[in-house]
Design a protein around this nucleic acid. Structure first.
Length: 563
RNA sequence: GCCCCGGUAGCUCAGCUGGAUAGAGCAGAGGACUUCUAAGCCUAAGGUCGCAGGUUCGAAUCCUGCCCGGGGUACCA
């Protein structure tokens, strides 16, 4: 509909003025109409004419050529042309689906990226939710999406964790892990996280421990090289790594996000090292101070180390390997990587390196970044320093706030509300900056929140239930209140397209909130059941409930039948 | 120092591919209700869009400089 109108307006510009204009219809305030174009303002310079004059002439032409779809063409302000759809056209627009713009495309979406042996913090919760929503958006646009997850099961932090674990066990004694009696997934994860913190502190403050940790780091790499599953050290390592993966699975299941294909760093390291060596020969990477580095300065970037003087791969190399491994596995058309924004410059360097040998892979990769999750009034979190706010702490704080705010009796409703609240709170802001999470506000059930939307859905469903067998009717000749709701509903496919193109789920949130507001307004002023216009109104309510539910589903948020 | 990101109402944020009186929610003020879920609706109030220049018919939006906050800047991720 929108595209067709744009085309017709462009044709009118051509016919009247022989002028090329880039027509992009926008959604103006409701009082102006359903669509607006600034074509006349654009053309005024090109034609050297007054924009109002151009607009008037165009309006006359459009009244004629668009008579079938448009009930009103008006000129306003400096020269905007406002279009009002006929009720029939508007009603037809409600059956338009979002574009299948990515049909046939294969997309790899990487996000969440938790590290084994370490705690899941609020940032992992954030990226799991946002990444899942973005992947959902891509999928609904027709793409085949592979969700992948990259985690550091090798690397210095593992050395730190192993140091803490071995110390706690009194040596390389895997049997000690059983004795500790850690049956519960949370407890295990917490225990390992505490060992990491000990290892990290020792690394910072104790030179002897630092040496041991560096050695343990090498030992972990060696263990992978030798495929060692039998030595006591290896047993400890594999057991704890498995504990982490079980914990991650449990976490994602609780969250209700789609499962991942895990790529442990140990799996991408060999490919990365091979690539790094190849690049060294090609002169893309170079030797410097005993390490293999990329000198980024020539590209407006900075120098980063790919292979340490110990001969170990850094994160850069493991990530380099990952890009090629992902391509080998999926032959993607597009790769989306979502991480914290502390990695922005780093990723530019890695992609610049990829660009030297496989420009098509670099070009197909989009790096999206987000900021920190902070608790309202709290401090920022850094897992390296140990003063983290855990992912589960966020969930618990939301659950507690929900219980304090309103009594929820059954567990399922509570879970839906709590996760609806958290997810919406994370998704409603544009991805990029920091997120201030306020548990009370997120579950407060008033204003721009997940529960508000869930409630707005339940209300509509309630009407539909009460209507019983009454059949919804058609949507010809709408009254103003009905038309407002229909107008908002008609924006849905455009909003989804925008969110897909920009990889920005917050557009969906903003829209759904406005839609729910439009519905609540409608609900207050228009009786449905028993009214003479019941059939038409039921149709609208049904449409609304379906639209809201679809939108929420893309966000990973449940739409309960009743609350 | 250099590079990146951010700075919009008391708070949390939309708007940023230039366009109509800069929009929401929360907090605070007022109001309506014998009706389908009041977790709602209605009304008013609240702004030097960090600052200063520039480009433009038109700038929160683009450009330059500065200020403030955060991140990165060689063997962490």
């Amino acid at each position: 509909m929108k595209t067709e109108l744009e085309k017709r307006i462009a044709e009118a510009c051509q016919a009247l003025f022989e002028a090329e204009a880039k027509i992009e219809l926008t959604r103006p305030e409701e009082k102006f109409g359903d669509y607006a174009t600034n074509a006349a303002l654009q053309l005024s310079k090109q034609l050297g004419k007054n924009p109002r004059e151009i607009a008037e002439a165009l309006a006359v032409k459009l009244r004629e050529t668009l008579a079938a779809q448009i009930s009103e063409v008006s000129v306003a302000g400096p020269g905007f042309i406002n279009l009002k759809l006929s009720d029939q056209t508007l009603a037809a627009a409600l059956n338009v689906n979002p574009a299948q713009s990515l049909a046939g495309k294969v997309i790899v979406a990487e996000y969440s990226d938790p590290n084994p042996f370490k705690v899941l913090h609020a940032g992992h919760l954030y990226t799991s939710i946002v990444g899942d929503a973005i992947a959902n958006l891509l999928e609904q646009a027709g793409a085949t999406v592979h969700r992948v997850n990259f985690g550091g099961d090798v690397g210095l932090h593992v050395g730190k964790s192993m140091w803490g674990i071995i110390k706690e066990l009194g040596g390389e004694k895997p049997e000690g892990l059983q004795k500790i009696g850690l049956e519960d997934l949370d407890t295990r994860a917490g225990w390992m996280a505490a060992r990491y913190v000990e290892g990290h502190e020792a690394y910072e403050n104790d030179p002897a421990a630092k040496e041991e940790i560096v050695a343990l780091n090498k030992k972990v790499y060696a263990l992978h090289d030798q495929n060692d599953h039998d030595s006591p050290f290896a047993k400890i390592y594999w057991t704890c790594r498995e504990w982490s993966y079980q914990y991650f699975d449990y976490f994602y299941q609780t969250l209700g996000v789609q499962p991942f294909r895990y790529y442990p760093e140990s799996e991408t390291a060999p490919k990365g090292i091979a690539k790094a060596k190849e690049l060294l020969e090609k002169g893309v990477l170079e030797q410097s101070e005993g390490a293999v580095v990329f000198k980024g300065e020539g590209h407006g970037l900075h120098t980063r180390v790919f292979l340490t003087k110990e001969g170990l791969p850094t994160y850069e190399t493991k990530d380099l390997g990952l890009i090629f491994v992902k391509y080998d596995d999926y032959h993607f058309d597009k790769s989306v990587v979502i991480t914290g924004n502390d990695i922005v410059e780093y990723m530019k360097v890695v992609l610049k390196v990829v660009d030297q040998v496989a420009p098509e892979l670099a070009a197909a990769t989009t790096h999206l970044t987000h900021g920190l999750v902070k608790l309202a009034g709290g401090e920022k979190m850094s897992s390296r320093k140990g003063n983290v706010v855990g992912a589960l702490e966020i969930i618990d704080s939301a659950a507690q706030a929900a219980r304090e705010t309103h009594a929820i009796e059954d567990k399922d409703t509570e879970k839906q509300t709590v996760f609806g609240a958290i997810k919406y709170a994370f998704l409603k802001n544009r991805v990029g900056g920091d997120t201030i999470y306020d548990p009370k506000e997120s579950v407060s059930l008033e204003g721009n929140s997940g529960p508000y939307l869930q409630y707005a859905h339940a209300r509509a469903r309630s009407i539909l239930r009460k209507a019983g067998g009454e059949q919804p009717g058609g949507l010809a000749e709408l009254e103003p209140g009905e038309r407002s709701l229909a107008r908002k509903l008609s924006e849905y496919p455009e909003v989804i397209d925008l969110a897909v193109n920009e990889l920005m789920p917050h557009h969906v949130c903003t829209y759904l909130y406005e839609l729910a507001q439009a519905f609540n307004r409608f609900y207050e002023h228009n009786r449905v059941i028993g009214d003479a216009r019941q059939a038409t109104r039921l149709k609208l309510v049904e449409h609304y409930a379906e639209t809201l539910k679809s939108g929420l589903k893309l966000l990973g948020i449940a739409a309960p039948e009743q609350m």
